[in-house]
Design a protein around this nucleic acid. Sequence first.
DNA 1: CTTTCAGTGAACGGGGATGTTCGACGAAAG
DNA 2: CTTTCGTCGAACATCCCCGTTCACTGAAAG
Lengths: 196, 196
Amino acid sequence: MRAEQQEQTRRRIVGAALELHRTVGPAASSFSAVADRAGVQRSTLYRHFPDDRALFLACSGQHLDEHPFPDPASVVSETGPEARAALGLGSLYRYWEEHETLVANVLRDGETDPVLHEVNELRMGAPIAAMRDLLVDAWPVAARTPRLRAMVALALDFRTWQTLVRRSGMATGDAAALMSATLARTAIDAEADAAA
Amino acid sequence: MRAEQQEQTRRRIVGAALELHRTVGPAASSFSAVADRAGVQRSTLYRHFPDDRALFLACSGQHLDEHPFPDPASVVSETGPEARAALGLGSLYRYWEEHETLVANVLRDGETDPVLHEVNELRMGAPIAAMRDLLVDAWPVAARTPRLRAMVALALDFRTWQTLVRRSGMATGDAAALMSATLARTAIDAEADAAA
DNA sequence: CTTTCAGTGAACGGGGATGTTCGACGAAAG
DNA sequence: CTTTCGTCGAACATCCCCGTTCACTGAAAG
């Protein structure tokens, strides 16, 4: 097949780009550098991916194909709020740990590059928002205060995991347990405040 | 005076650099851009600051002169652990809010640039570590578990404030109150676990 | 066997940053 | 009044990246 080899080349390019994104980050992955690492001419790269956006979308797409983001829906089996939080945070934190360098680079450079920022929102924004809602909704209505929502959002954030694990040396599992317990405490406070 | 005008030029340069650090961040503040904005020849800039490190140190020094970091020692007046946490987090969060863009840019680019990272540690690492210890030590020994230390470190982190305020829309004061209460809850859990 | 076409290799002009060097100017210091 | 010296303005060579173009080769498709 003709198209097969074309697809082959495309995969080599995306693979090379992902490697660079993991090591130096998207911002430092110039088209020249990607072409070099893929063993391909720059002109070839431009034919497959006319701009950054096309390349970013291909890379994030392939990465998520091979390493699916934790499915928010999987937490609905747990109905107890703290247990659901523990389950959700556990799977998310494991994902953060497994793909730390890539996520860290992509978030860092996304603060600067608007196109990358947009792709990040597209790829990670939706699932995390869904997870946030599912965790919050496990608590009784009275507990679902802005405070609780904020703590859930904080708990889900990549930087929170990174701070707990990399700066304080916690194990990823302990970090998830700590934040689940914290959410439970916050919910109790929230409900008490609502009653008063 | 001869030296006065020399000092004048130096200040113009540092001011211009700080402006750029606030707007686009240190990484995007090339020597050319700084010289342009300062209205100074590049050669002049190089005479005052031979390398990035010299310029970074001058900038951070001047900024901290004009906007001193919250003094960790000021929290010792409060002996109650939660009150001390509220005081410390309150002053720190106010600092984060007032200098958000500069801090955000400097932390982001520090992830990439080793020299900048070093300067960041030098300028912010020490005071934050001191604050962390003072907050932790307000609790009884039994409560000072790794968990509590980790939560204190998380509470002090710039990203935590940013997540609570910018992503969840909390007021800075509410964020400080929320995290103080959270620390208190964590300490209770920690002490209970230690007793068991 | 010929056509098609993805990929090659090389080059183009343009942009920006780097670090250094030089002569000339002009005002303060002696 | 003359020396000193910080600053200017300009130029240098070097490096990296950008987006595009073009003649070419070789193998799959017809």
